[in-house]
Simulated scan of single mutants.
Amino acid sequence: MTAPAEGDARSTPLASHRTSRTVYAAAHVVADPRRNPGPGGPAALDWDATLAFRRHLWSLGLGVAEAMDTAQRGAGLDWPAAAELITRSAAEARSVGGPRAAGAALVCGAGTDQLPPGEHSLAAIRSAYEEQLAVVEGCGARAVLLASRALAATARAPDDYAEVYGHLLRQAREPVILHWLGPMFDPALAGYWGAGDPDTAADTLLRIIAARPGAVDGVKVSLLDTGREIALRRRLPAGVRCYTGDDFHYPELLAGDQLGFSHALLGVFDPLAPIAAAAVRTLDTGDVPGFRALLDPTVELARHLFEAPTRHYKTGVVLLAWLAGHQDHFTMAGGLHSARPLPHLVRAHRLAAGLGLFPDPELAAHRMRALLTVYGATP
């Protein structure tokens, strides 16, 4: 299968009001290779290329989930850079119709990553969340309350989570998206919601939502466990969405069943954007088999990009953005372009090429050969 070509009817933006699913692509950032300080230093971004990629996603009709883990939050993107990223992206969204207009939908991550690693008081954690929430809401965007490493390190019981999130939900100006990122994406988040057992953790999350359901737009679930995601979405209060963050099983979760479906907030929709947009347009017509025919063939690439250690999936995402011509280099904040071995990168190129994801296949092949040369491999 191939991605929609320029001029193909499938490449036109989504209609003003999507009739089937709300879809956000969690977008990567483009580092500035001339100023990148390497591991541990403050992030230096190429703002023109970073914002151009967001315009690319909006042009396809996808929403943008900004300053999420795909943008290397807590893994190369520090809070000052994330705050500037949120501010710039919100301004860019307004320039093309407003943060929640069709083609410029935007949600932004608010967390606690300005705090140093380790335990903190619950008051300090609340304050850190409030600082970031103020930046997001001050830009006119809707917030995703990111899972907090500081809270995971500090909380001693589910009630600690209920206290922090209850406080935030009471003061949020607009409904927020809650963020449940499994330990395969970030080992520091093991036992989130106060329990090592995901089913017990889900009970706590649902109790937090039930206390203020009107303050919650939805829950972003990244557990790579279809059964648990489906069980959770069936228990959500009416009007609270389940946003799948499952980069292994997204076609079936979005397609849904007779009892419901998931919306999407996915890192894999960054490299898959043209196909993902075409698939959602097909789903809008009620053509579920056509939707699956477009999206199912992408799962092999997705599972490859997100293979263990899953947290390094961003390396493959940035590689494919470079090969597709969205940026001029294969460099990442914090030096994480080195996080995946060469055979992984080679297979990512091959699988993406097989899906027709490169607007200029010759450019992609040329850049891949150049990368092989740098590694000392025979092109």
Rank of each mutant, 00 (worst) to 15 (best):
A377K: 13
G38M: 03
S338D: 12
V96L: 06
A210H: 10
G376E: 12
Y192E: 15
R235S: 12
L224T: 08
G97H: 03
D328M: 04
L254Q: 08
R88F: 04
G356W: 00
V29T: 12
R207C: 01
A278M: 07
F306K: 02
S20P: 03
A255E: 15
H263R: 10
L259Q: 14
D225K: 03
T12F: 11
D287W: 07
A128F: 02
T154M: 13
F306W: 12
A65G: 06
G214T: 03
S262M: 02
D328H: 07
L106T: 03
P271N: 06
R303P: 06
A157Y: 00
D197S: 11
G194S: 03
G256E: 08
G335Q: 10
A128I: 01
L323A: 11
H344T: 05
M68D: 02
L336N: 09
L265F: 09
P251T: 07
G256H: 05
A231G: 15
R347F: 01
G325K: 06
D328K: 04
R34S: 14
Y313W: 01
A278R: 04
L45Y: 07
T12Y: 09
M332Y: 06
H179E: 09
T112W: 00
A143G: 06
L205R: 12
A279S: 08
P80N: 13
P361C: 12
G76L: 08
H28D: 05
P42Q: 13
A353W: 09
R367I: 06
V96T: 12
A110E: 01
V240R: 06
A352V: 05
H120T: 07
W47P: 08
Y165N: 07
G40P: 14
L283F: 08
P198N: 10
A255K: 13
D247E: 13
G97T: 03
W47A: 08
V107A: 09
L133E: 04
S127Q: 15
E174A: 13
R73V: 15
M332N: 11
A67K: 07
S121Y: 00
V107T: 13
D159K: 05
T19R: 14
P359M: 05
P42N: 10
L236G: 04
A201S: 11
D328A: 15
A202T: 07
L60Y: 08
H337P: 01
R173E: 14
A153G: 07
R367D: 09
V299Y: 00
D257A: 05
G40H: 09
P187E: 05
G196S: 13
V164G: 01
D360A: 09
Q327N: 02
A102Y: 04
A308M: 08
